[in-house]
Write a protein that binds this DNA or RNA. Structure first.
Lengths: 325, 325
DNA sequence: GCGCGCAATGTATGCGCTTTCAGAACAAGC
DNA sequence: GCTTGTTCTGAAAGCGCATACATTGCGCGC
């Protein structure tokens, strides 16, 4: 930067000003500086800038899995909005493990991000302490709580389960099974479904739970086990994701079982393929774009010290009725 | 850090050493420092560390789309390997536009990453200049070239197209259509397919090209247009991705067209669902884990100044024969 | 007992910026 | 002509660490 200044006949400070706020330097000086930057190929050192200004212009996001499209779309909306305000974006994967999340939070905080997005509301005590100590906006997404670390934008997983149970009963179903895979939130959806379905007079014959990610194979296997091992002869199948629901539909077809006549299926997520396969999947939609953008807005409001920041935002969900249930 | 030192009765340097190389500090001192860190909740400032040491311990990856599972899995393998060596991971999205990529490279370089992964081999002249000027390992992936910026790990897209054409002809097909969506690489696969298919005596009746991401809807529409607008009555359909191929299969089913009897379909990517749907998709597999890991190895070898770094690595591909062709 | 080497620690410096604070030059107002 | 305000620029300090170099203390061999 000093070298650029020499070339332009000004001091290093003036170059700094030209870069951060061009209106602070005279037009002629600005032109000379710009030319000098061009000639030298100067790329400012954001690390030094961050150290001096105590603003890293970096926001970090922690997601359980970067290959899961559900988180990816949410995080994309978040990062796009933040980028419009000049922030860069550090993505880390926690893999569903709070201990791992804690370690990652520690290393991530060492980069002194200006804000942080976390997926989920359950963190270790030490993690909460570090987050509070960091004194930056923290937004927890994809779930909802009354006592967030700082900000929270999400929806109630239990509520989706209950809503699906009520939907199933309203459609006349009295027998159900569940196929679940993934994280603790998927389990909460399932449990809420089962409880509500039972409350309303239905019977949950079996619950098939998988550890690890939802795959088509696990969906197929889920229905197979419901039928072969739990004697499930027909009824409603609550799946914790569209992928599992798709697998259930495939397995039903392979066995010549009518969907939704004999087996009705619900998914979760409203992924791209849900509307396209045959029959299209009845599912729960959460607007992940809105969620990501709302999270960004909340963070930006905090950073801008705007006072009207709602601490907790419920973005809700919607049951999309299609062909499978 | 100085405060931690005071509490532990040592100087700031000793704390620094305790953190970066515990063996340089006596066991008793180390214990006192660790305790002081615990008490104060000290989180080292990696920004200051990076400025002083000129090593940011940050690697950046640029992908066209973070929501595309194909890039996500590759990048995940890369980042996992890099994390084992203490590197953190900055992910940016370029959106298929070289100009945008150039801007992003500039801002990303301002963070002084220790290495950089780029998707694709086509960059603006200015981008290449900046990358060379940054004097860090740069690895271009997901394509292959003889003249990489620095390192290259990938495969030949044209080669996959030719291989599929030869496969189709070997299966007895003489008429074909193509459905393509996505980036320039998808187009290269298609063009190589069409050229080779024609060379071998076949006829390509129509090529349906979409701008933008591959979706099931575009796959369905692709087959519909081949049939309704190009008079495609049967033959081989080359799809530039598994998602499109899936869409073609769905549309064929909806129209009562036999797959693979009347219409044979090939995809690309070997995604999770390809093996699970009915009939399972014949596709081109590229080992994205190996690709990501190889890219990381190449970068680590460069950083470690190991001399035996192969500049260009071809990870190849494989045609997976399944039910659709 | 002396010098030597090694382990453990400290001092000083600077990484490349941003941020005060201060000064210079100039126009406007009385 | 003097003050006052405004615009532009520069000098100096310091952000929180890592690194080079210096210092201390100790055990060892002779």
């Amino acid at each position: 930067m000093a070298a650029v200044g020499r070339l332009a006949g000004v001091s290093q400070v003036t170059v700094s000003r030209a870069l951060s706020d061009p209106s602070k330097v005279s037009p002629e000086t600005l032109a000379r500086i710009r030319e000098a930057i061009e000639v030298t190929g100067f790329v400012p050192n954001a690390i030094a800038g961050a150290l001096a200004s105590r603003r890293s212009m970096l926001v970090t996001a922690l997601v359980p899995s970067i290959t899961n499209i559900v988180y990816a779309t949410m995080v994309k909306a978040f990062s796009n909005r933040m980028r419009e305000h000049g922030y860069q974006f550090l993505l880390s994967e926690t893999g569903f493990d709070p201990e791992e999340e804690e370690r990652i939070i520690a290393t991530v905080l060492s980069r002194r991000p200006d804000a942080m997005l976390l997926t989920g509301i359950h963190h270790t005590a030490q993690a909460r302490k570090m987050l509070l100590g960091a004194d930056i906006p923290v937004v927890e997404v994809w779930d909802i709580t009354d006592s967030p670390v700082d900000l929270c934008v999400g929806f109630s997983h239990a509520e989706t389960g209950r809503a699906v149970a009520e939907y199933a009963v309203a459609k006349g179903h009295r027998r159900a099974g569940t196929v679940t895979a993934g994280d603790a939130r998927a389990l909460r959806r399932k449990e809420a479904f089962s409880r509500r379905f039972t409350e309303l007079g239905g019977t949950v014959l079996a619950e098939i739970d998988h550890d690890g990610p939802a795959t088509l194979a696990r969906g197929r296997e889920g229905l197979a086990r419901l039928i072969d091992m739990a004697g499930f002869a027909g009824g409603f199948v609550h799946c914790s994701s569209d992928v599992l629901a798709h697998g259930v539909v495939i397995e039903a077809h392979a066995r010549g079982i009518d969907v939704p006549g004999t087996v009705a299926v619900s998914g979760f997520g409203d992924q791209d393929f849900a509307a396209q396969i045959e029959p299209p999947i009845t599912t729960v939609r959460v607007d992940r774009d809105v969620l990501g953008r709302s999270a960004a807005e909340a963070v930006l409001a905090r950073i801008g010290k705007r006072p009207d920041v709602p601490t907790v935002t419920d973005v809700g969900f919607e049951i999309i009725t299609r062909g499978t249930a």
